[in-house]
Amino acid sequence: MRCVLVEVRRVSVDSHVICTESTMRVEVEKSSFHGLHEDHLRLNDGANIACRLHSNSTYVFADIPLSGCGTELEEDGDNLRFKNEITTFDNTADVITRKHLLEVQFYCQYPKRGNVTLAFTVHRPIVSVWDRGFGRFTYQFEFYANDQYQAMVDSTSYPVVYEIGSRVYMQIEATSSVNNTVLFVESCRASPYDNQNSQQTYSIIENGCKVDPTVQIHSPSHPRQFRFSMKAFKFIGMFDQVYISCTVLMCAAGEPNTRSSQGCISSTTPATWPHNHHRRKREVRVESARHFVSQGPLRLKRSAESSESSALHLNLNLVFIAGCLLAAVGMISAVVLYKARMSKVKYQPLSTDER
């Protein structure tokens, strides 16, 4: 007979968790889990491609929405706790595992009671990029007050407040030192989170085509501008803010085989040139790479705020009516008092000496 000793140990890993009002960011140092490859690590919801872990030379990390990626909610009398974990897997289709080599549990805790504050990401600055063949150029994404595109929404007034159904005016403008260039907006989407990889999105423009039925394209003042508008909306659920993000690129003006010249590509639109011809044109840099620009948040006006002005007018009317009623009551009281005093006057006959 012989004895086999099995040693079971719990080894701590170096990790960091950053909690925001809508997401959790977890970072785990690679040096903490020797012998495991990051491709075999997953969150609770491993089937969702938007919930996959990312890595660099030092960390494995992920940005996780509080309402997605398998995040579980626990609560007690004082706190709300949003929990998730990183575990190992062999196959994405597996439901169970018997090789639980790593388990990193993490959570963000929020008190149910306390001082409530709202924190919004500030206005996005101008995006500056460099592209071979196009040099250095910039993109600026802004909201405007109306379809005249003269009054840009002040960056200090963000989040921009809208009523549901009102029209939101937007403009993307590119600046470049290269002449004869055209801006092309390939797609635009909305999300309730400030996260490019957010799973919950709503398409506004796809493949250069209008998807949202309320979208209107407005005339630009030059070819490196794109102006559009749509009716404001909100995401179903406990979301009161919207971020808009777009994929854009620069094209050489006058070239027949650029993405800009092709315009809207629906699923039924056939290709207008051979693939090898497109590749040859790409070699002479008639298009830039695709870039990502975003702006927000838009905050939808709450019902109490939308009725504030009407409530104010109603209150003023009530004050006026109450004042009139008080004045009328005062006048009636004065008349009654006067009549009461008059009724107290008694007439007495004069004495015979005074007749």
Rank of each mutant, 00 (worst) to 15 (best):
C3E: 10
V6H: 10
E7R: 03
E7G: 05
R10Q: 08
V13A: 15
D14W: 03
V17D: 01
C19T: 12
T20F: 02
V26P: 06
V26R: 04
S32A: 09
H37E: 13
D39R: 08
R42D: 07
L43D: 01
I49M: 07
I49H: 05
A50Q: 09
S55M: 01
S55Q: 04
N56I: 12
N56G: 01
S57E: 10
F61Q: 00
A62W: 00
I64P: 00
P65H: 14
C69F: 07
G70V: 07
T71K: 13
E72F: 10
E72H: 13
L73Q: 09
E74Q: 15
E74Y: 14
D76I: 08
D78E: 09
L80T: 01
L80P: 03
F82Q: 00
F82A: 03
K83H: 15
E85F: 07
I96R: 13
H100V: 07
L101P: 04
E103H: 14
E103K: 09
V104W: 14
C108D: 01
R113E: 06
A119S: 02
H123I: 06
I126L: 09
I126N: 06
S128F: 08
D131L: 02
R132D: 12
F134V: 06
F134C: 04
Q140I: 04
A151C: 07
M152L: 11
P159M: 00
V161F: 01
Y162Q: 02
E163Y: 05
G165S: 13
R167Y: 12
Y169M: 05
Q171C: 11
T175M: 08
S177A: 11
N180W: 03
V182S: 06
L183M: 01
E186Q: 11
A190F: 08
N195M: 09
N195Q: 15
N195V: 11
Q199S: 14
Q200D: 02
S203Q: 06
I204Q: 15
I204V: 07
V215S: 12
V215C: 03
H218L: 13
S219R: 11
M230R: 11
A232Q: 07
F235E: 05
Y243K: 05
Y243Q: 04
I244T: 04
S245T: 00
S245I: 03
C246Q: 10
V248P: 05
L249T: 01
G254V: 01
S260W: 12
C264K: 04
I265E: 10
P270A: 10
N276M: 04
R280G: 02
R280Y: 14
R282W: 03
E287C: 09
E287V: 03
R290D: 04
Q295G: 00
G296T: 00
R299E: 08
R299Q: 13
K301W: 00
E308T: 11
H313F: 03
N317T: 01
I321G: 07
L326D: 02
L326N: 05
A328W: 08
G330F: 10
S333L: 13
A334V: 06
L337P: 07
Y338W: 14
M342K: 15
K344G: 12
E354I: 01
R355V: 11
